[in-house]
């Protein structure tokens, strides 16, 4: 669940301690829509009857979010940024079983 990309600092605060923001490169984002396969869906549906954590969906959303973040970082590095600040996440359900995960932030150059 930990996501560290070498060379790019990703934070959801507006400033980074010990660093000075020298250039603002605008908002960058990355998103993904993913669904689990039918077999896992049925299994999760069974687990849902009993209640509690649905591990298959926890994993699915975690993977998707990792992908969204890496896309955001790719977008930022393409603009020549070395940090992304004020990152926010948005989740929306497109249809049952598929979710859109969206991560966005401001690409900046820090020193």
């Amino acid at each position: 669940m930990q996501h560290i990309v070498e060379g790019v600092i990703v934070v959801n605060t507006e400033t980074i301690a010990g660093k000075v923001i020298t250039k603002n490169l605008g908002v960058v984002g990355g998103s993904t829509v993913r669904a689990k396969n039918v077999g896992r869906d049925i299994f999760a549906g069974l687990k849902n009857i009993v209640g509690g954590e649905l591990t298959a969906y926890t994993e699915l959303l975690d993977e998707s979010r990792n992908q969204a973040i890496s896309r955001m970082i790719a977008d930022a590095t393409a603009r020549g940024a070395n940090a992304v600040i004020n990152v926010r996440f948005a989740t929306s359900a497109v249809t049952a079983g598929a979710s859109e995960l969206f991560a966005y932030g401001t690409a900046v150059v820090v020193e």
Binding site: M1, Q2, H3, I4, I9, V10, V11, N12, T13, I16, A17, N48, I49, V50, G51, G52, E53, L54, T55, Y57, T58, L61, D62, R65, I69, V87, F89
Partner: peptide, 15 residues
């Protein structure tokens, strides 16, 4: 500094 995050999918039982 860096981003840290965690998630859980949690649901009530049918009962």
């Amino acid at each position: 500094s860096g981003l840290v995050y965690a998630n859980v999918v949690y649901g009530p039982s049918y009962w």
